[in-house]
Amino acid sequence: MMIASMQGVVKRYGSNIVLDYVDLAIDEGEIIGLLGPNGAGKTTLIQTLTGMIPFEKGQVTLFGDVKAPFSNKNKEKIGLVTQEITIFEELTAKENLQFFAGVYGLKGEEKKNSVQEALEFVGLSDRANKMPKKFSGGMKRRLNIACALTHRPRFIIMDEPTVGIDPQSRNYILEAVKKLREEGTTILYTTHYMEEVQAIASRVVIMDQGQIIKEGTVDELIKTIQHEEKVKIDVTDAGQIPLNKLESVTGVKQVNVDGNQIMIISEANSGNLDRILSLIKAHAGVLGIQADKPNLEDVFLTLTGKQLRDKVGEE
């Protein structure tokens, strides 16, 4: 069943198009990893999907509801984990969860139990009555997540939930996301960390400049750029090696030298490693070889380019 979809959604800020005819479909039980450089429109997409901001064209459907997708009835089924920490610092961890549980209509024992479960889920049971002011960054992030889980939503949107925290907390959060997936919750997860997406996403969507430029599973995306192979060879003296001869080997696309390491990019399956090694061994000693397979980061950089994108206030 389709939990959420966007069809031809356009969002402008003045003359700046932030979402450019975006089409996105999210099926129940999926974890969608939404990747994109700064300014790609990820947070605007989330805000449009949750009805926080209006859009100029297109359609958003939530839980099959086209006419009133952002009704309170649908909002009850969504949990939003914001990029910034948006908890109440003047309330204890437990009070924060009680606040949100109350807003989502939970009462009495059900509310009490769900608050307790949410605290246990994020590992904050022993800090239930403490103020978030005294929490570490990782603990605040976990509480930030717990606030979106108290009402057991069907669809959770997580906007860069692991920004700026230690590896232990990050790992804890990823394990929690996997647990949610096992429980059948649908998750839309945005992040800059490729390894997170590789670890948890069932499908990856890559966005840039307000458009979805590629989507698929991790393997499908890697195959799209698997037309290159990268080999790094450590040698005794790179200065001795005739680089022009290396570049003229069949299948070699690019040769880069960094100190005594030579990086050779060749077409996929060109089978030229033998010839490359023979050429190098004739002029210098080989200390080590490393063959890199493309990963999601390579896909991302290939599709979106390697230039820095310093767009202030992306969304």
Partner: peptide, 12 residues
């Protein structure tokens, strides 16, 4: 401020 995202996503 940033909290408005959470407030506007709430069903009330």
């Amino acid at each position: 401020t940033e909290r408005k995202q959470r407030i506007y996503a709430l069903p009330f």
